[in-house]
Design a protein around this nucleic acid. Structure first.
Lengths: 214, 214, 214, 214
DNA sequence: AATGAATGAGGCTTCATTCAT
DNA sequence: CATGAATGAAGCCTCATTCAT
């Protein structure tokens, strides 16, 4: 009987994560409004009613999903590079590599599109995303770039703009994966594209005397 | 009697455009599923039933909107530069300027987000967009870049990748405008950002001996 | 100008009949609820608005149609045989022949089905039909049969029942034509069927000593 | 717990039949187009949404109703007389009696009118009815009549025509009940009418030497 | 804790009817 | 007289949410 109970307990503990996982799938495929609770519950292997035991509403489920996954991405990134002491250029290169692995290669690539799509429907969520993800991420990158400028690694200019230039091709890739990859026989080669991005951007960011060394 | 008739006729002739304009507004604010025909019709100054005199369904209205606006953007661009004979670098600079004026400064900036948001619900629309907008646009840019490479203006590399790097910050800007600008007191300065983009990208694209002249 | 006016007048005078004709067609094909005023008007060669100049509503049009056509059938029949003096058997035979020509061979064959279909929707119309068409027709037939019984031409029995037996196969034929004929390559041979009906019924109605002489 | 579950299960098992019963009532009263799902559901004691758990659409409900009821009528009839060995005349008499009890006396009498009324709106349904009900029924009767002719019980003639003559007064009765009975204080005496029909038809069908023995 | 049958508000769409021209 | 653009009430259907079991 204990075994059964603990099995139940384990099930109970896993339910929210299983539902979030299923929700990510379905939201990614259908968008918020078109996603049906029936299908999310079914993919999580439970009945519709059960989903409501863990999340108050479809909106609640959506919010929980976004917050959960976004923290999942940022926290380790920030922590890992908090104490970094090498060159800023290499820091950016490592971040780019990380991004490709942690986001573009997974279902998470669907999240930006999802948030973008539902801004109108979830202003509070958009604000949360703006504050906790974008501002946080761009701020993080800006500090790295400012550090590089101070060290003479990068040309002068608005660090926030540079940060956005750094992010833009990654965003484009995520959107491409989520939206348009399906129409090609072989998927777009993100790694090669991001590698090109790395070369061009770092070349463009280099201070005048050092340009051309990529 | 002619004046009377023509007044009616004029209304009739203007209805579709008025409805498309209203649809762009509402779709941009709410997304497809959450947009209500009632509201679209109301903003166009007509009743719900009238909208159905001009468009068979909400889907039809959506399709017409995307097609109409996309043709509006691309056709003049392609025609204007068909016979261009100056430097490729200047061509890209002019395109960038055009983009900012014709897209970022208008409600059209909402369209990319709109399409991105509704891919799941309208696979056919996504494919239409992929073929007629993205492939067309990227192909256009790729040809310009290849031309520049042949003339020794740009460094070697995959023109399609370069084209995407060219577009990415513009896309990010459009999304920013549509999604996150609302949370700031003063709007993001797209012109300055795109100007930074221009400098960095063209610097990064330059062949080795010429780098550093932006 | 007179010519034009009189032409107009002629048009005006013909409009109601043209609309009734079109209405018969469309109602016959679609039933009442599914018939659209648009289509009726179009088949009459006028616009929807014009139809409302002549009939207050779709219901009104329907009522006018039924009354008009029913009177068209019965009045000449009753008048023609008011002064008849021959045998009752021959009278029935002539009626049968008339029915086939005036009803089964024309679009009028659709009317019974039409009325039957819309009883629930138009109780008053059903009552009108009951009193003015059915009771009138069955009464007419009953009087003929009673006359025949008095003359020793027919066996005794409830004349109303005999009248209904007389009508039933005609009704069945009209319904068949309106509903099921479309599924056969060659149409059902009503003439032969009604001829069989004539033989069997008159044989069955004959008084005992005379049976078997058909 | 079993008792509880079985109670629910029993409800669920009974729902379709309850809905079909309610649908028969409402369709019979209003016709297809004018019947509202709200009312059908209400008469079945459930909400509109619940009806859609069991039937995909109003059309589906209508189809299910017709199929269900028609099978209910025909199957036992055919089976009961599969192994019959008595006289064909008695067989027809028994069929007539059955018809009156199983159809004319019940709500089923509304079905023929229903189908007739909706042919235009449901061509596929009409074809289904034509093949599975009419052809089946007339074929059944034709075989009986041909058997009687082979045994010398009936006069020669097209068995299909005879079958239709057999059915016509029954159809008339069903239509009468569904449409016009409501306007009389006391209902039409179907039993007497069908009894008259029996006498007259069998008398008319008899071969010459035997006529007059009804 | 889990289920899934039931609900009913909400939105798209149709079409009889009106009325300005 | 005639038109046809415009209306808006009405009805089918969906699906998030509830609750008895």
């Amino acid at each position: 009987m204990k075994a059964q109970e603990s099995k139940r307990q384990r099930r109970k503990a896993e339910r929210p994560a299983e539902l979030l996982e299923a929700a990510l799938e379905v939201f990614a495929e259908k968008g918020f409004a078109a996603a049906r609770m029936d299908e999310i519950a079914a993919r999580a292997g439970v009945s519709k009613g059960t989903a409501y035991l863990y999340f108050e509403s479809k909106e609640d489920l959506f919010r929980a999903l976004v917050q959960d996954r976004m923290l999942l991405i940022f926290t380790p990134l920030e922590q890992a590079f908090e104490t970094y002491e090498g060159s800023s250029r290499e820091l950016l290169e490592m971040l780019l590599a990380r991004f490709c692995i942690r986001v573009l290669g997974t279902k998470l690539a669907a999240l930006p599109r999802l948030v973008i799509a539902e801004v109108g429907h979830f202003p509070e969520l958009a604000e949360f995303y703006r504050r906790n993800v974008i501002d946080r991420g761009l701020g993080f990158l800006s500090r790295i770039i400012a550090r590089g400028q101070a060290r003479g690694e990068f040309r002068p200019g608005n660090p926030d703009h540079f940060a956005r230039l750094f992010v833009a091709p990654v965003l484009l890739s995520a959107i491409w994966r989520a939206c348009f990859d399906r129409f090609d026989d072989e998927p777009f080669d993100f790694a090669a594209f991001i590698e090109t991005h790395r070369k061009i951007l770092l070349s463009g960011l280099a201070p005048e005397p050092e340009r051309g060394k990529q």
